[in-house]
């Protein structure tokens, strides 16, 4: 809708970030977050993962293939404002891709280990993946000096089951949207 200088460069930059493995970005992200004094706050892991390049790319593909521009032009002719065009026409048609991006983003955040491991020093702030890793180091076989803080291996298995259950539930509920979303942009006529 809006044309601005450098939008193609911005798209290319998004794609380049998408191609990089997450682990390569952890140290640069740590330096950036440290520069704005957010280490140890929850925003240190929410903000880096909130700008999700794969989600931007997926919605870009969806809007550029599945949504005919004539539809938006028709809405503009009928007197819709730009925000109205987005909210009344584009957004309802994009429901499958919203669900798809939401699911992938949720799973990526939920299973993220390395970034919170680096960013959060306090064990009361750990997400469950880092907590599991922390607990796994307190097995008596691994570390004989843990004493009363020891964790047995079956308890770790149980904790793992607890940690994967939310993803399973979200997947079961979003399955029909996901199947519809996977076909987004599959045909072009």
């Amino acid at each position: 809708m809006t044309e601005f200088r450098g939008r193609h460069t911005l798209l290319i930059a998004t794609l380049v970030v998408m191609l990089m493995p997450n682990a390569t970005l952890v140290v640069p992200l740590f330096l950036e977050v440290n520069a704005v004094h957010l280490i140890g706050s929850m925003w240190s892991i929410i903000l880096p993962y909130a700008f999700y390049p794969f989600g931007v790319y997926l919605t870009y593909i969806y809007f550029s293939t599945a949504l005919p521009p004539e539809l938006l032009d028709a809405a503009r002719l009928d007197g819709c404002s730009e925000i109205g065009v987005f909210r009344r026409v584009a957004l309802p048609l994009a429901a499958p891709v919203v669900a798809l991006v939401g699911f992938f983003s949720f799973v990526a955040n939920w299973t993220n280990y390395f970034l919170p491991y680096v960013m959060l020093p306090d064990s009361r702030q750990f997400p469950v993946q880092v907590g599991l890793g922390d607990a796994a180091e307190r097995r008596p076989q691994f570390n004989p000096t843990v004493g009363s803080l020891a964790v047995q291996r079956p308890e770790l298995a149980l904790a793992t089951l607890l940690a994967i259950t939310p993803v399973l539930v979200v997947f079961l509920f979003s399955q029909r949207f996901l199947v519809a979303g996977m076909l987004a942009g599959a045909t072009k006529n």
Binding site: M1, T2, F4, R7, L11, I45, I46, L47, Y49, A50, F51, Y52, G55, V56, Y57, L58, T59, Y60, Y62, F63, S64, F86, A90, L91, A94, V97, V98, V101, G102, S105, F106, N109
Partner: peptide, 16 residues
């Protein structure tokens, strides 16, 4: 993070 992702990704992608 999911809320911010959706607010960022969906309108930004429509711009392109």
């Amino acid at each position: 993070a999911l809320v911010i992702t959706l607010c960022v990704a969906i309108p930004r992608a429509t711009d392109w």
